[in-house]
Simulated scan of single mutants.
Amino acid sequence: MGILMAVVPCTAEHAELIVTKAARTAGATPAQAAAAVTATCTGDTAVPPVLERALRTEMDAARRPPTYPANLLLPPAAIPRQHLTHRGPPAGAP
């Protein structure tokens, strides 16, 4: 899992999820998928193409940032306008 955590990067829990999803997609066991991660990164042994493709797909998906609706993080339009037109307190005000 450490190799996967360094390559993606991700937490141990997320690495386990990646391996589990890839194994399920490829019809392999999680142990076979974990061994394939090591073999893919080190080039020691041949990895079945279906398992390598599933791992690469899951790793790519883990690297992509989440998508949010465009208005999720934006304040109402009036708020930035108020901040941009605010000039501070009038001269002589306490």
Rank of each mutant, 00 (worst) to 15 (best):
G43D: 13
P65M: 06
A36C: 07
G43V: 13
A62K: 06
T42P: 02
P48M: 02
A46K: 09
T45R: 15
G43Q: 09
Y68M: 11
E58G: 03
P66G: 09
A78R: 09
P65D: 06
L74D: 07
L84G: 08
A33L: 05
P69C: 06
P66L: 12
R64P: 01
I79Q: 13
A34I: 01
P66K: 11
R24L: 14
C41M: 14
C41P: 04
A34D: 15
A26Y: 08
A34V: 02
L84E: 10
P76S: 12
H83Q: 08
A31C: 00
A31T: 11
T85Y: 00
A31M: 10
R81E: 09
Y68T: 12
P30V: 05
M59W: 04
G43C: 08
T40H: 06
I79P: 01
A70P: 03
L55K: 00
C41L: 13
T42W: 11
P76G: 12
R24N: 12
A54T: 00
A28K: 07
H83V: 07
P75C: 01
V47S: 00
T42F: 14
P30A: 11
V37N: 02
D44I: 05
Y68I: 15
M59L: 14
G43H: 07
R63P: 11
M59R: 05
C41W: 13
R53P: 00
T25Y: 04
A62E: 02
Q32W: 01
Q82F: 15
T67V: 08
A31G: 04
C41K: 05
A22H: 01
R63D: 05
A62V: 04
R81S: 08
Y68N: 04
A31V: 01
K21E: 12
Y68S: 12
V50R: 05
V47T: 06
I79T: 04
R53L: 05
A33M: 05
M59V: 09
P80N: 05
Q82Y: 13
R64Y: 09
D44Q: 13
R63A: 06
A36G: 07
T29K: 14
R24Q: 13
R81Y: 09
A54L: 00
T29G: 03
L74A: 15
A70F: 09
A70D: 12
A23D: 05
T20W: 08
P65G: 07
I79V: 15
T45K: 15
N71H: 13
T29N: 03
T85S: 14
A62C: 06
T85E: 11
A35W: 03
A46S: 10
A54Y: 00
A36I: 03
R81T: 15
T20D: 08
P66A: 14
A70N: 05
A23L: 03
A61D: 14
L73R: 10
T25H: 08
V50N: 04
G43T: 07
V37K: 03
R64N: 03
L72C: 02
R63F: 07
A62N: 08
N71W: 12
A31E: 14
A70T: 14
L73F: 15
A26S: 09
A54P: 00
T38S: 10
P48Q: 08
G27K: 01
